[in-house]
Simulated assay, not measured.
Amino acid sequence: MSSDEFRPVYHPAGHDAELRAVVQELRTGRWMSMRNLLADTADWASWTRRTQVLAAAAAGTDTVHIWRTEEPHSAAATVMHARVAVERAVRAHRDRHPETANLWHEAWEACQVCIGQLPDDPVPWVCLLALSPLDRGRRMPEHRVPPPGPMLFPGPWGLLGEVAKRDPDCREAHQRMLQFVYSRNPRGSLPEAVNYARWATASAPAGSPVHVLPLYVRVERYRRERGQDRALDLHWVTDDAIRDALAGLRNWFEYADPADSSLLDLSHLAHALWGAHQFSEAARVFRALGPYYAPVPWTYRMRDDHDDIAQGAQELFLRARSRCLHAPSA
């Protein structure tokens, strides 16, 4: 297929073919393939990633409820029950639904049950981190723990620590912490997010997806500053921006297996390298994406008055991909 004919595909499962098939089954109300997939999932990174994707697909259905009714002693069903409850609460909070408080309480209780039954599993602690932005008044003591270092903020550090005890390199936990930061003070939280990303990457081992975290913060800053009206601007070609993009490439991508990588991480890295004019390096990431695509952060390049933001973002992705793949030595 020529570059002119190429059209990327978005799927939340990305390169995980087994997960893609299960998501399709789940959407038709079938749960046995989900059970079998999770039974065959051997590492915490895959377990966390797969349960997150499955919960997003299952949140609008009663599939997990049916599974849990059929197999009430299933550990995986207990985890998925907590995952779905948290997904529903987070969505309700985002949509300002009047049932948010009740859904939040149900989700918190589901996490506690999960912790009691599965003390070694990081996912219920990740779920509690996902719920932390709902506590806007920081009424719960677990959401205002003193920080572990200077230039950081009071927050759910104990929850993050519980995840780290079980999975020291949990990608989702750090993404959830960023969401908590943004919920603290939406207008003034960017410096805190920058400091958090620096703190997290400082101790992250080579190959950790945590090294992509600064690129998410940079995209959020760009989005807030309304820089979308220029295809390439100085925000992406400063020394700091180039350093962050190359650090993501060298400290994470060089070690990453696309089959186990988040499409969002790959998309943010490709976007950052392209924006920093590191075209041949970006080409490697575009190749790793293969036929897949994540709309974010490309949608943030679109003006709000664009006729079709989704289509415009995809066209921008295709232009960036083509530019990088045709770069010298790409």
Rank of each mutant, 00 (worst) to 15 (best):
S322K: 15
M302D: 07
R250I: 02
I242M: 12
C111P: 05
E71Y: 11
P148L: 13
A13H: 04
L232C: 09
A77T: 12
A241Y: 14
R20T: 08
Q117G: 02
L213I: 12
P148V: 07
P122N: 04
V23S: 02
M32S: 11
R221I: 00
P72T: 03
R30H: 05
P150Q: 13
N195A: 15
Q314G: 03
Q311D: 12
H271D: 14
P209M: 03
L246W: 04
Q52L: 13
A57L: 00
P141K: 10
M140H: 15
R230I: 07
D167C: 06
R187Y: 01
M302S: 12
S280A: 11
L160I: 02
A39W: 09
T238M: 01
W157L: 03
A310C: 05
A39I: 05
R49Y: 03
I115K: 10
H15T: 09
D260M: 08
V84N: 08
H174Q: 13
Q179V: 03
L54V: 04
R321H: 04
A89F: 04
H326G: 14
G290S: 01
E5R: 15
G149T: 11
A200Q: 14
A272G: 12
M1Q: 13
D265H: 08
E142G: 01
G29M: 02
D233T: 13
A13Y: 09
H306Y: 08
D260W: 01
P98E: 12
L129S: 04
R223Q: 07
L103H: 00
W31P: 02
A77E: 07
C127W: 01
A77V: 05
S267D: 04
G161R: 13
M177E: 02
R7A: 14
F180S: 14
S189F: 01
